[in-house]
């Protein structure tokens, strides 16, 4: 398809013409080590296909994927197995647990396919289970656990092989909202403790904003915008993204960088100082207590001034 005029056809026309749909096309991005990279999109936007092509659960028809310096798309069968066994790990929306095995054996499964001896893999699995707080459930079976607990098993299974890259395919969308929040906290915690690189797929914008260091928004198989959360909220690339973020409380995402003004010459520089990465919401209490503006700093340098009016304008602008 590449190199033919079809490449630029809109999706519906392409389908009419070829009977196929390009789930993902013209997508390219880098994920930095230790970063949480979120891919966000509505269902059918191609995000799940995208994450699967990363470890070739779905074979890409064209293009190139590189993980940890290795070309995945050109990998041999053995190289691919090694990648899946040691480098990456994936957590799935519907858990994909083995109903006929205990929780412990489920967590140890990745090690088992690597050929790790039983006592060793059980020890490691028990360790990881403790990490996700399921040490008491080791000898239970998946169907005896709640959905949230099952997904913790899924998390533990992914962590047990100590991968460099964690791939999450909408891991929490089958869970109810309260548990979802817990699990998000869990991921944040694990991320802090282990510092792994994560690619996180979701259709839930608040989740994306909460977890992502950077977010790619997908539509019809293409990335329409890629940036840090505040980039998306502060300057949506098009109407589609703008529509998306409409209901997001901007003050929770935007940092002072987005509302500060440059300091006027001769302005007093003894006002309270806050880092420029502080969110608008967090600066409100400070401004509420004094008439003075606050100074946004980057290191020791003052980069801008934020006054009450700017904050109020930012908050009032929400929902437009």
């Amino acid at each position: 398809m590449i190199g033919t005029p079809d490449v630029d056809l809109p999706r519906s026309e392409l389908r009419a013409k070829t009977g196929c749909v390009a789930a993902v096309r013209d997508v390219s991005f880098d994920v930095r080590p230790g970063e949480v990279f979120v891919v966000m999109g509505l269902s059918g936007s191609g995000k799940s296909t995208l994450v699967r092509t990363l470890i070739r659960l779905i074979e890409p028809t064209a293009g190139r994927v590189e993980i940890d310096g290795h070309d995945v798309t050109a990998a041999s069968r053995e190289q691919l197995l090694r990648l899946r066994r040691h480098t990456s790990s994936m957590v799935f929306q519907h858990f994909g647990l083995l109903a006929h095995r205990t929780v412990l054996d489920n967590v140890a499964f990745g090690l088992e396919v690597q050929g790790v001896a039983k006592s060793e893999r059980h020890a490691r699995a028990a360790e990881v289970l403790k990490l996700v707080g399921l040490e008491d459930a080791a000898s239970q079976f998946p169907d005896e656990l709640s959905g949230g607990m099952q997904q913790r098993v899924g998390l533990a299974r992914a962590f047990a092989v100590d991968p460099k890259v964690m791939l999450y395919d909408e891991p929490f969308s089958a869970l109810d909202p309260l548990i979802r929040r817990d699990m998000q906290d869990e991921v944040i915690r694990l991320q802090h403790e282990t510092g792994k690189t994560m690619v996180f797929i979701t259709h839930d914008l608040p989740e994306a904003l909460r977890l992502g260091d950077r977010i790619a928004i997908m539509r019809d198989g293409r990335i329409v915008q890629l940036g840090e959360p505040e980039d998306l909220v502060g300057s949506p690339a098009d109407d589609y993204v703008a529509n998306f973020i409409r209901d997001i409380p901007r003050s929770h995402v935007l940092t002072l960088r987005w509302i500060m003004r440059p300091p006027v010459d001769g302005e007093r520089l003894d006002a309270p100082r806050v880092p420029v990465t502080t969110t608008v919401r967090d600066v409100v209490p400070r401004l509420a207590n004094s008439e003075q503006p606050v100074l946004a700093t980057e290191g020791d340098r003052v980069v801008g001034v934020v006054d009450r009016e700017a904050v109020l304008r930012a908050i009032a602008g929400e929902g437009d």
Partner: peptide, 21 residues
């Protein structure tokens, strides 16, 4: 279930491991 097969594949099972395990 396809998702179980997928999960086992993603974790690096060979075809034979997938079948037997």
């Amino acid at each position: 279930p396809a998702n179980t097969v997928e999960a086992a594949t993603a974790i690096g099972s060979t075809g034979r491991q997938l079948l037997w395990k």
